[in-house]
Nucleic acid binder design. Structure first.
Lengths: 187, 187
DNA sequence: GTCTATAATAGGATAGAC
DNA sequence: GTCTATCCTATTATAGAC
């Protein structure tokens, strides 16, 4: 991999951290510049569209990460319960056990929403679809599998909100523990 | 009630709408001025601390509303299931069936977080406590009642995120429908 | 209490040297 | 590709008349 690509990846990782913590409107170029170690002009060299481009790059990275590490593994070989468990472990690590904010939730507030609405919907649909497929494979009727998948995603997002709002990561970890039975139980 | 108090209440209602739609950092004084129909100087007359004061006033209003219309009714007379149903109807109306953003979620992003962290935790704790009391009254063991109450709040918040993210209010309404059985079932 | 006018600053974005 | 210096605008906030 060329050094330029690698450094861009690193820059996007830093941008992600700023947007995750401060949201779209709350992230200033000064913060983004400091976090990446690049001057403003250098940022504009890599992201000609300015802050909007940076947010899109961050969202693209989240999408890719989500597909590669959370959604694709759901389709791999092995027992459904085991595949689900691996996805939940990945999520747990990404959100530091509930101590980090929900990237998507924070990016979607204010000026960020218009920029990312379509891509955000795509991630949610992909995620829900993959979970529903898994539940169906485990023997849950189709319609019920879809509803349970939506519930699972909602529980994860809601638990992140609750964890952030109360400063206590416990609800998030508990939500992750409860999801397997909710999603895969055959009644 | 004096006219001044009434007009302040009205102003706060308009401020709420702006913060709910744009978040703390995304809401500008120009927008807040236009929404209330007051000039900037008039806003500073009512809220000397500027935008931060306005956000706190909005949060105080949300807190009061939450206690009066969602939490107190949970303690009233009547069957627990019926009281819960009334609270859920109130929430449904407030969030327009899932078509409006979560006020708390949007206010807490970016610069708003530091302002409201303590009050946000208080609302969540009040809400969860009231729901847990209700479940306990309905015969659910204490520890389980508490967990189910946290799950219920997380489901509501998560469903609002999902509804906003996908532009489809269905998950929110379905979450409201599912909560009674989740919270009150005796197994 | 509300307004007009204005300050003071921070924010996003660009120019041009190296 | 990165930097320094700069521009322009929007934003927060204040002064002072009415």
């Amino acid at each position: 991999m060329p050094a330029s690509l690698r450094s861009r990846e690193e820059a996007v990782a830093h941008l992600l951290a700023v947007f995750q913590a401060h949201g779209y409107d709350g992230a200033s170029l000064a913060q983004l510049s400091k976090a990446t170690g690049l001057g403003k002009s250098s940022l504009y060299h890599h992201f000609p569209g300015g802050k909007a481009d940076m947010a899109r790059a961050v969202l693209a990275r989240v999408n890719r990460w989500m597909v590669e590490t959370a959604i694709e593994p759901l389709k791999g070989p092995g027992k459904p319960a085991r595949r689900l468990a691996r996805m939940l472990e990945t999520l747990d690590a990404f959100y530091a056990g509930g101590r980090k904010c929900c990237v998507l939730g924070n990016l979607v507030v204010g000026g960020g929403r218009a920029l990312v609405q379509a891509e955000l919907k795509a991630v949610f649909d992909l995620w829900i679809g993959a979970l529903a497929d898994l539940a169906a494979e485990a023997g849950v009727p189709r319609a019920q599998a879809r509803e349970r998948a939506e519930d699972a995603v909602a529980m994860i997002e809601g638990a992140l909100i609750l964890a952030g709002g109360r400063g206590d990561p416990a609800p998030f970890r508990r939500a992750l523990r409860r999801i397997p039975e909710h999603l895969l139980a055959r009644d």
